[in-house]
């Protein structure tokens, strides 16, 4: 995912670094589809970013690129306006969410999270297993609810609430670890240890997120 460093204006042939408007003739330019999202928003390539600056640039770009503004432009400009808008929206959604940004950062570093490369620690697998067993107990308890099993249901509800609180705590802890990992990039220590840690954290977050959804669903029917 190397970002092209030079773009040529479709109208005046000026060569410049990829940007939305040609610095020479001000024509709207199609952005290279594989431009990296940090470069797109004029940010340093670093996972810790200034969220305010990101949002501000996003709104600015959205305004400048808005297809309504380019209705009277040439076919190239209309097309560029549409494609750039879609790209900018996608890039913004990715960068503003730390989890998405982390996963994007892994991909930029050539190690995208896949189904094969994200082992979780045994203790976490065991935790997930135990929660799944409780969820199975909830599913089994439902058909019998008419037969005066209110106490049993209340017990399950209390247990599920406890599980959800536990999951919230774990998720908060992971968010802190994610932020800590982001701020370490670019410092003296090698990036391979940081990459592994980032993978671990994001894998655990993906795992717990799915589980949290299941727990919320169980709570909603209890």
């Amino acid at each position: 995912m190397a970002t092209p460093t030079v773009a040529r204006c479709w109208r005046c042939q000026d060569e410049h670094r990829p940007q939305v408007f040609c610095p020479a003739c001000e024509a709207l330019q199609p952005l290279p589809p594989d431009i990296d999202y940090f470069t797109l928003f004029g940010l340093a390539r670093h996972p810790r970013l200034d969220e305010q600056a990101l949002a501000q640039t996003y709104y600015e770009l959205s305004r400048q690129l808005h297809p309504d503004l380019h209705q009277t432009g040439t076919a190239q400009e209309r097309e560029a306006s549409l494609q750039n808008t879609a790209l900018v929206n996608r890039a913004y959604r990715t960068l503003r969410d730390p989890v998405q940004r982390g996963r994007y950062w892994l991909a930029l570093n050539g190690e995208p999270l896949g189904k094969e490369n994200n082992k979780v620690p045994p203790a976490l697998a065991l935790f997930v297993f135990e929660v799944q067993e409780k969820l199975a107990a909830v599913r089994e308890a439902r058909p019998a609810e008419t037969e005066g099993t209110q106490d049993a249901l209340a017990g399950l509800r209390a247990e599920m609430t406890q599980v959800r609180d536990d999951l919230d705590d774990r998720m908060r802890d992971l968010q802190h670890r994610l932020a800590a990992n982001f701020s370490k990039w670019g410092q003296a220590d090698g990036s391979s240890a940081l990459l592994s840690e980032l993978k671990r954290v994001l894998s655990e977050m993906a795992y717990l997120r799915t589980l949290t959804r299941d727990v919320e669903k169980a709570l909603s029917i209890l």
Binding site: V120, F129, Q132, Y207, T210, D214
Partner: peptide, 13 residues
């Protein structure tokens, strides 16, 4: 052995 697959949410004992 308890192992998990975070991307799909599966867990296996």
């Amino acid at each position: 052995g308890v192992v998990g697959a975070p991307e799909c949410g599966d867990v296996m004992k």
